[in-house]
Amino acid sequence: MQIFVKTLTGKTITLEVEPSDTIENVKAKIQDKEGIPPDQQRSIFAGKQLEDGRTLSDYNIQKESTLHLVLR
């Protein structure tokens, strides 16, 4: 499925993911596309910070959902 990741600069990245993917996985995909190390990424969805060990389905993130990426 496709999800979108919006950065603070307003750029939107499209990722191909599975509901079973962990947040860690997703951060690795963002690193592949953007070169941002996962330890600098904070992902926010529906106002909640997403934890690395959880999966997209844990957070009820579905296709075409938009995550927000904040850098630390």
Rank of each mutant, 00 (worst) to 15 (best):
M1Q: 00
M1D: 01
Q2S: 09
I3N: 01
I3T: 00
F4N: 03
F4R: 03
V5I: 12
V5L: 05
V5F: 05
V5T: 00
K6D: 03
K6I: 14
K6E: 06
T7G: 05
L8R: 10
L8N: 13
L8K: 10
L8V: 12
G10R: 03
G10C: 07
G10E: 03
G10T: 02
T12L: 13
T12D: 00
T14W: 06
T14R: 11
T14A: 09
E16D: 13
E16W: 14
V17N: 00
E18G: 07
E18C: 10
S20Y: 09
S20W: 13
D21A: 06
D21N: 05
D21H: 04
T22N: 02
T22C: 03
T22R: 05
I23G: 00
I23F: 04
I23Y: 04
I23V: 09
N25I: 14
N25M: 15
N25Y: 11
N25T: 14
V26T: 02
V26G: 02
K27C: 11
K27S: 05
K27F: 11
K27V: 08
K27A: 07
A28L: 15
A28C: 06
I30Q: 00
Q31N: 11
Q31L: 11
Q31E: 11
D32I: 13
K33W: 11
K33P: 06
E34T: 15
E34K: 04
E34H: 10
G35E: 05
G35Q: 06
G35K: 06
G35V: 04
I36F: 11
I36D: 07
I36W: 14
P38H: 12
D39C: 12
D39Q: 10
D39P: 06
Q40V: 12
Q40T: 09
Q40S: 09
S43A: 15
I44T: 08
I44A: 04
F45C: 09
A46L: 13
A46T: 04
G47M: 05
G47F: 05
G47Q: 05
G47S: 04
G47W: 05
K48E: 12
K48Q: 13
Q49H: 13
Q49R: 11
L50S: 01
L50C: 03
E51S: 06
E51M: 10
E51C: 09
E51K: 07
E51W: 04
D52L: 05
D52T: 05
D52R: 01
D52S: 06
G53M: 10
R54A: 09
T55N: 03
L56F: 03
S57P: 01
Y59Q: 03
N60C: 07
N60Y: 06
Q62V: 13
Q62S: 10
Q62G: 12
Q62K: 11
K63S: 14
K63H: 15
E64V: 00
E64D: 14
E64I: 03
E64L: 12
S65I: 04
T66H: 14
T66A: 03
T66L: 10
L67Y: 01
L69A: 02
L69Q: 05
L69G: 00
L69N: 02
V70W: 08
L71M: 11
